[in-house]
Amino acid sequence: MWHWLNQKFLAPKSFYANSAKLIPWIALAFALCFSYGLFAGLFIAPADYQQGDGFRIIYVHVPSAFTAMAIYFSMAVFAVFTLVFRVKVAAIGMSCSAKIGAWFTFLALITGSIWGKPMWGTWWIWDARLTSVLILLFLYFGFIALQSVIPNQQTRDRAGALMAIVGVINLPIIHYSVIWWNTLHQGPTLSKFAKPSIAPAMLYPLLAMIAAFLLFYALTLLLRMRNQILLREINSQWVAELIHE
């Protein structure tokens, strides 16, 4: 069963062929979610009664922060497939995810900071969530740095996989310790990111944007992976045939 699956879908060659069919659909779904989310978020959703129109950056900030976290977890899943089942494609997916994830984390930090300026009157505050996102960025940097120094492909894949797993075990501990640290030092202030209840008109565009960001990740991931597959298999027969076509 597993062997069959491996041959049918997860061998680099068949993955390359099958992913081509998937890409247009993902692109379409992304376009739909993104256009609805953006339009509804910017024009239909009512302005926040405290923050006015400034809150609308939530439609970029929250999805990017969420996606950044989700990508790290997906890397850990890829890592397990790399280490336990020795799936080559998973290793490729993992290292491609890292760079996309780092960019999403960066985006979350930038938008958080832009949001913070009118809300807090300063570009940066050591808010629990922003700090967690910052630490996530460091974890991504560590992963990328590790993979960039190891010359051997197989070692690079496995070392990265182990690091991703170590990171994902630690991530909840880091996250909660930062939240705890934050409440300890700042007292129970009202977090700007806390949304005890949110009006449906605000919520649906947000969900759409989160879906759109995840789809965008899937899309760029597939494109990057296809690229990497070609690079790694450059000496194989099927790539040579592909180039001749």
Binding site: I135, F138, G142, A145, V166, G167, N170, I174, S177, V178
Partner: peptide, 10 residues
């Protein structure tokens, strides 16, 4: 340090 320091935060 780059690899490990984030893990030291807790």
């Amino acid at each position: 340090p780059i690899l490990i320091m984030p893990l030291y935060i807790p």
